[in-house]
Design a protein around this nucleic acid. Structure first.
Length: 776
DNA sequence: GGTTGTCTGTTTTTT
DNA sequence: ACAGACAACC
């Protein structure tokens, strides 16, 4: 009888506790970096179940990444283990015998973890759709069945390309398939149908894109496939058209928790709102009996606007769901401001930097740990020397401090391409490292080929997968043959598979390739039969063997082929692992998971290695020592953001995210010269963010040198305006480097100049806005 | 139908 | 610089 409510929550601070104790109604937790938001979330879930008697089945917890979902499950499990060890065995968890541990874990998993719905928006929606998608039809009557394929970005682009170039014969320069795909994606993230798209963007371009969008949806339906955006949008539309379906999920998920709420887009918001209110479509919704909406986020860490995330959704929470009272008197917002992660000097820098942003909730990170060391700033000659410096510094710290193992260090950069210089030196130095994100296991050609085979078995309508592997390995089924078959399929309005699987049609259409096509069809048909009899592992091995794919790689004999072979086997391992971890593992479930999984390396965590990743991937993580590299104008902030104030604010938030990853030590570097697009970019100007950090927390032995070489960006603004620019002047631009003026337009205040840059080509620039310096 | 060589855009970030 | 797309050739 020692377990009371107090005991579970006793380790929380007052604000965390207020968040964790929240039962019914809306609550926004505005949680600064390192303030224990995951803690508040997990403790609240435990508290709901243990102290309020909520059935885990009634809880929906949405995270932004798979990693975060895994982490949350683990932490909830640990909480329960701690708690139940005391209740059931009357001793702390650490004192349990191995058998008792095992028994306890299995019990916790079955009664608490498994019935909880914890996952990303995409994974959770995919799961709901496996139940209900057959009740859905879109505005034009298209339907899907529960074996739908999930198209990744690659598949989606292929489809758009097909439409743009073949169906509509558009000028590929004006309507680049990637740009069109991106526009469609953005439209979907705003909740627009093709019709709505056209209404929102009624100009010529908008009308064309709307038309592509419309055909694209038709094709997706023909393939029985959805793209990433549809996974969210389709449930929203289904909920709007089918009251019973919405009522079911609304009743089911009484308590909804959303992590990283600042990263939600409008469609995701609609989904959450529908699930929470059950479709009561007004702000007067206030039936909070036995229900809650609990969102956690930080507007200062909103870094996904390029994916249509909109942090004003977080800023509006109080208006949407809350009591709409001012911050001081509201009962529907809690701020977590104590920072348990970083040393004071690091927090000072972070607070100072982010305070420059206009759009935010006022909030500071209050230090709880000692002052720590100043932030170290290093100015390198080029990207190679930058990497050498960082690695040498890591070796030195590792040598000096026995407790600093390799896993303590992280190198964070703006773009993936920056990892190369570091990798080269790490390999040469023989140090253990891991690259998080970047190349993804499931993006590799051979893995996608294997998955395509499997997808066809589950969803034979998936023509994208079918065309992908029909001649891989080579079976003498060339482009002309595939085109003929495909045209017939389009003509008849049936999936490609139906043509291929009919020997007569094939004989008529395919000429001398007919035999090969028929053999391929027979192979696939045979394995389709086995989907319900054999395990996913057996099927995967079987089809990859019998299709000749493995044989083909083996006989190539190159290192690359060997590598690919290894990856195919690695996929088999992943399937086997999946079968071990999931009771109802089957091929369908595996494919659903694989489509949404990022990379496999996450599985082998725990290895002691230096971490390399982009700033975006670093969100949510923390490291004792962080190196923030490549702080150069044009790289970070990225050149596409410099002239766009909201985008620049986002870059600044990204920098804030980077700084706040560091626990004890932060080191910021930039290079004066950087290899980019093949050539060198000379005289790179240090990032403006360096100037935006408070001076007194920066320790920077090379500061003087770097300033003189790069010029001070702060001062350059003022010196550049009254100049007389002339054709032929040699100049240095803040982000494009050195160049020569080729034209001068206008006079006086309204002057603009065209400059030819060796690296970036010709650009027209306003010297008032851009930092331009004349060279003598 | 497959292979070789040339041309092009590409580098912001991701579920 | 480099991969992927496409055309010309085998």
């Amino acid at each position: 009888m020692t377990q009371t409510k107090n005991d579970i929550l006793s380790s929380l601070n007052p604000s965390q506790r207020q968040a964790a104790e929240h039962f019914c109604g809306p609550l926004l937790v505005a949680a600064g970096a390192g303030s224990g938001k995951t803690r508040a979330l997990t403790y609240r879930i435990a508290n709901l179940i243990l102290n309020h008697g909520v059935d885990p089945e009634n809880i929906l917890a949405v995270t932004f990444t798979n990693k975060a979902a895994r982490e949350m499950k683990n932490r909830i499990e640990q909480l329960f283990a701690q708690h139940l060890a005391l209740i059931r065995y009357d001793k702390p968890r650490s004192a349990l015998t191995p058998e008792e541990q095992m028994k306890l874990r299995s019990r916790i998993y079955h009664s608490y973890i498994k019935p909880l719905w914890v996952g990303t928006f995409h994974a959770l929606c995919a799961r709901m759709l496996r139940y209900d998608i057959e009740k859905y039809q879109d505005a034009r009557g298209h339907r899907w069945n529960k074996n739908f394929s999930i198209f990744d970005e690659d598949d989606a682009q292929k489809l758009v390309k097909q439409i743009v170039t073949q169906e509509l014969n558009l000028d590929p320069k004006k309507f680049n398939h990637k740009t069109v795909r991106y526009s469609i994606s953005n439209g979907k993230n705003k909740g627009w149908s093709p019709q709505a798209y056209q209404e929102a963007e009624p100009d010529y371009k908008g009308r064309v894109i709307s038309q592509v969008y419309s055909i694209y949806q038709e094709k997706l339906a023909e393939n029985n496939a959805l793209d990433f955006d549809d996974l969210i949008l389709v449930p929203v539309q289904l909920f709007r058209q089918n009251e019973q379906v919405l009522a079911y999920w609304n009743r089911r998920f009484r308590h909804i928790l959303v992590d990283e709420y600042q990263d939600t887009n409008h469609t995701q918001y609609d989904l959450i709102r529908l699930l929470t209110t059950g479709g009561v479509n007004s702000y007067s919704f206030n039936d909070w009996q036995q229900r809650s909406i609990f969102v956690v986020g930080d507007a200062d860490q909103s870094i996904y606007s390029f994916r249509m995330a909109d942090f004003t959704i977080l800023l509006d929470f109080q208006h949407d769901f809350g009591d709409r009272l001012p911050d001081e008197s509201t009962r529907t917002m809690v701020k977590l401001e104590e920072n348990y992660r970083s040393r004071e000097q690091i927090l000072t820098a972070a607070n100072h930097l982010i305070a420059r942003n206009e759009q935010r909730i006022d909030k500071v990170l209050r230090p709880t740990r000692g002052e720590g060391d100043p932030i170290y700033h290093y100015s390198a000659d080029d990207e190679q020397e930058e990497a050498e410096f960082v690695i040498q510094k890591i070796r030195q710290m590792n040598g000096d401090n026995p407790e600093m193992h390799w896993g303590c260090f992280a190198i964070l950069y703006r773009v993936n391409a920056q990892s190369r210089a570091f990798e080269e030196i790490l390999v040469r130095s023989n140090l253990p490292y891991k690259i998080v994100g970047g190349f993804k296991f499931y993006d590799r050609k051979e893995v996608k080929d294997a998955l395509a085979y499997l997808r066809i078995l589950v969803n034979s309508a998936d023509s994208i997968s079918l065309t992908r592997v029909i001649n891989t390995p080579k079976r003498n089924i060339g482009k002309t043959t595939v085109d003929k078959l495909m045209n017939a399929a389009i003509e008849l309005g049936v999936p490609l598979w139906e043509i291929i699987n009919d020997a007569t049609s094939v004989n008529t259409l395919a000429g001398r390739s007919a035999k090969a096509v028929i053999r391929f069809a027979e192979l696939m048909a045979k394995w389709q039969q086995e989907v319900n009899n054999m395990t996913a592992s057996e099927i995967a091995r079987g089809i990859m063997e019998e299709s000749g794919y493995i044989e083909d790689l083996k006989k190539q004999g190159t290192d690359e082929a060997e590598d690919r072979l290894q990856n195919v086997f690695e996929l088999f391992n992943a399937i086997a692992q999946f079968e071990e971890d999931n009771e109802e593992a089957n091929l369908e479930n595996f494919l659903a998971e694989a489509a949404l999984a990022s990379d496999l390396d996450n599985l082998k965590e725990g290895t002691d290695a230096i971490s390399l990743m982009t700033l975006h991937s670093a969100k949510g993580l923390e490291f004792p020592v962080v190196f923030l590299v490549g702080l150069e104008q044009g790289l970070f902030p990225n050149h596409r953001s410099i002239e766009d104030p909201p985008a620049l604010e986002e870059e600044r938030r990204l920098c804030y995210v980077g700084i706040t990853r560091a626990e004890d030590m932060l080191c910021i570097t930039h290079a004066l010269k950087r290899r980019l697009w093949g050539g060198y970019r000379e005289a790179a100007i240090p990032s403006q963010f360096l100037d935006e950090l408070p001076r007194d927390v920066l320790s920077s032995p090379h500061l003087g040198r770097s300033r003189r070489k790069g010029g001070s960006p702060g001062r350059a603004v003022r010196t550049s305006s009254p100049q007389n620019w002339r054709k032929g002047d040699r100049v240095v631009h803040r982000s494009f480097g050195p160049g020569e003026i080729t034209h001068v337009f206008g006079t006086g205040q309204k002057i603009s100049v065209a400059i030819k840059f060796p690296g970036a080509g010709q650009k027209i620039i306003d010297p008032q806005l851009d930092q331009l310096q004349k060279l003598e």
